[in-house]
Simulated scan of single mutants.
Amino acid sequence: MAGFYTSQSLSVDVGDDPMKEDLLLLLADQRALLEIAVAGVDEEQARTRTTVSELTLGGIVKHLAHGELDTADMIADPDPDAQFDLSRLDDEYTLGESETWAATLDEYAAATRRFEEVIAAAPLDAMIPQPIAPWAPERVWWSVHRLLANRIRETAHHCGHADIIREALDGQTTMGVLSSGLSF
Rank of each mutant, 00 (worst) to 15 (best):
G59V: 01
K62G: 04
G67Y: 01
G67P: 09
E68M: 05
L69H: 09
L69S: 11
L69N: 14
D70C: 14
D73M: 13
M74D: 11
I75M: 12
D77P: 02
D77I: 01
P78Q: 02
P80Y: 01
D81L: 04
L86W: 06
R88N: 08
L89V: 11
E92L: 14
G96F: 00
T100I: 04
T100K: 08
A102D: 13
A102T: 08
D106C: 08
E107P: 04
T112D: 14
F115Q: 03
E117L: 01
V118T: 10
V118W: 01
A121V: 10
A121E: 15
A122L: 07
A122V: 06
L124D: 07
A126I: 04
M127T: 10
I128F: 02
P134A: 00
A136C: 04
A136K: 13
P137W: 02
P137I: 04
P137D: 06
E138T: 02
S143C: 11
A149C: 06
N150V: 12
E154P: 15
H158E: 07
G160A: 00
G160N: 07
A162P: 02
R166V: 11
R166A: 05
A168V: 03
A168W: 05
D170G: 03
D170I: 03
G171Q: 05
G171T: 13
Q172R: 09
M175L: 14
L178N: 00
G181D: 09
G181K: 13
